[in-house]
Simulated assay, not measured.
Amino acid sequence: MSEPLYQLKAEFFKNLGHPVRIRVLELLSLREHAVAEMLPEVGVEAASLSQQLAVLRRANLVVTRREGSTVYYRLTSPRIAELLSVARGILSGVLEGQAELLADLRATGPR
């Protein structure tokens, strides 16, 4: 018997559940990147980046190609970039709502 879809979705989102992985996916949404290009953008040690890239590879969210000693990463699907864009839109709405709530709290003052 196969895993229920909701469990697969939970595992999918769990694989996205790390700031370094999100940043890597954002970079790869723009274009293919070599590991050395990602390091300064992500701001972690090489070993940590390698570990997070391995998680993304196992989840089939990224693929690699080798050119000499350089390893390049790219997204397996442009829909991953779409998902990140949708998440940004959702977060923008949430933050706008929180900003409105904060403004209301400040306007009413202490009671």
Rank of each mutant, 00 (worst) to 15 (best):
residue 83 L to T: 11
residue 106 R to Y: 08
residue 65 R to N: 10
residue 35 V to Q: 01
residue 58 R to N: 15
residue 77 S to G: 12
residue 67 E to G: 06
residue 67 E to F: 04
residue 91 L to C: 11
residue 13 F to H: 01
residue 51 Q to A: 13
residue 36 A to Q: 09
residue 100 E to V: 10
residue 108 T to H: 07
residue 97 G to D: 03
residue 55 V to R: 04
residue 97 G to A: 05
residue 46 A to T: 04
residue 39 L to F: 01
residue 16 L to V: 09
residue 15 N to W: 01
residue 28 L to A: 04
residue 36 A to E: 14
residue 19 P to D: 03
residue 102 L to T: 11
residue 61 L to I: 08
residue 55 V to S: 05
residue 59 A to P: 03
residue 51 Q to F: 12
residue 29 S to H: 11
residue 69 S to E: 12
residue 29 S to Q: 12
residue 107 A to S: 15
residue 79 R to V: 14
residue 64 T to Y: 08
residue 55 V to F: 11
residue 68 G to V: 10
residue 103 A to T: 13
residue 4 P to W: 02
residue 46 A to Q: 10
residue 69 S to P: 01
residue 58 R to T: 12
residue 70 T to F: 01
residue 89 G to P: 06
residue 81 A to L: 09
residue 79 R to H: 14
residue 25 L to N: 05
residue 66 R to I: 14
residue 67 E to K: 13
residue 19 P to Q: 05
residue 52 Q to L: 02
residue 56 L to T: 02
residue 78 P to G: 09
residue 105 L to W: 08
residue 107 A to P: 05
residue 68 G to C: 11
residue 2 S to N: 06
residue 65 R to Q: 14
residue 12 F to N: 02
residue 67 E to C: 01
residue 109 G to A: 10
residue 106 R to H: 07
residue 106 R to D: 08
residue 40 P to H: 03
residue 22 I to K: 06
residue 58 R to W: 05
residue 6 Y to D: 08
residue 110 P to K: 02
residue 62 V to W: 04
residue 72 Y to K: 06
residue 61 L to Q: 03
residue 32 E to Q: 08
residue 22 I to V: 15
residue 80 I to T: 14
residue 13 F to W: 13
residue 14 K to I: 06
residue 14 K to Y: 09
residue 105 L to I: 15
residue 104 D to H: 05
residue 3 E to R: 15
residue 88 R to K: 14
residue 90 I to G: 01
residue 111 R to M: 07
residue 17 G to Y: 08
residue 15 N to T: 03
residue 33 H to F: 15
residue 80 I to G: 06
residue 79 R to W: 12
residue 16 L to I: 09
residue 5 L to W: 03
residue 6 Y to E: 10
residue 41 E to C: 00
residue 79 R to F: 14
residue 52 Q to F: 01
residue 90 I to P: 03
residue 84 L to F: 10
residue 104 D to G: 05
residue 99 A to Y: 05
residue 95 L to H: 05
residue 46 A to N: 04
residue 53 L to S: 01
residue 41 E to R: 00
residue 28 L to Q: 03
residue 30 L to M: 08
residue 92 S to I: 07
